[in-house]
Amino acid sequence: MKYAYFPGCVGQDSCNELDVSTKLIAGELGLELVELKDATCSGAGFLQDVDYDLSLVLNARTFAMAEKMGLDILTVCSTCQFNLDRANRELKDDPAKLAEVNEMLAEIGMKYNGTVAVKHILWVLVDEVGLGTLRGRVKADLSDLNIASFYGCQLIRPGDLHTSDDPDRPQYFEKLIDALGGKPVDYDGRKKCCGFPISFVNPDAAMRMNAKNMVDAKEGGADLMATSCPLCHINLDIYQGTSEKVAGKRIDLPILHLPQLVGLALGIAPERLRVKRHAVSAKEVLKRIHRREDGHPVPTGGR
């Protein structure tokens, strides 16, 4: 399995532990990643607010680079996934638009034929690496942990764009957590908004949303939360303290990136996954992950 890897801007900057942990688990699972070092930002919706046409052309340039390598694109961010995939779908569905974009790409010596697929690492882990393979590779015992998923809106909606999961009952993350040996937490907030896109416009509303989802998860018994989007991670982790003030209650919920959770299950040391970079410490929770001997689960004492 070989992919053109689109790391995303935040995934290599303030959340660079996402990039590091992605590369670590890819190595363990035999996912070959060719990094799209020269790709631009996907636009994240903000560039689209200013100039949608420009975002389309810049993203087409990224697709053309992957197409030239003969590879599909792998993303690790719900926001990148949506903005890239929406542009890709528009270019594939509208030959006139594709032709117009290609006229511009020709000026920089590029062309996009519409043959690339854009896939989030969550889908690749479940559909391509496979849950069976993952189960077989798990080296740590996560059975003591209730793990809440947080998808990020743009990975599950709109359902007609992301056809792999059900927008009403998304299950990919839960299936993954189960395969890694953890207990998925069922709570409504997992498919809601973290508030990040309006953090700079209406911070109070953003923090209320953020707090509500985490309180929901905690009430559902969550010990830990994992997210498929670094922008959600910023709000859930860095702004958890601010959200606690808005909610008027202590939350104290450690938040991991999806590849960090996979890495822990595969037995990669937390230090290598840079778990210590998070604002909310996962130290106590990580103590409850036990080492498995020769693939035999540690007895759980009937938990």
């Binding site: 809106c153 743009q154 909606r157 908004c193 896109p197 309006i198 416009v201 949303m209």
Partner: peptide
Amino acid sequence: DCDTCLYCNE
């Protein structure tokens, strides 16, 4: 103030 959660489109 739209948080682009896409629920409305969905």
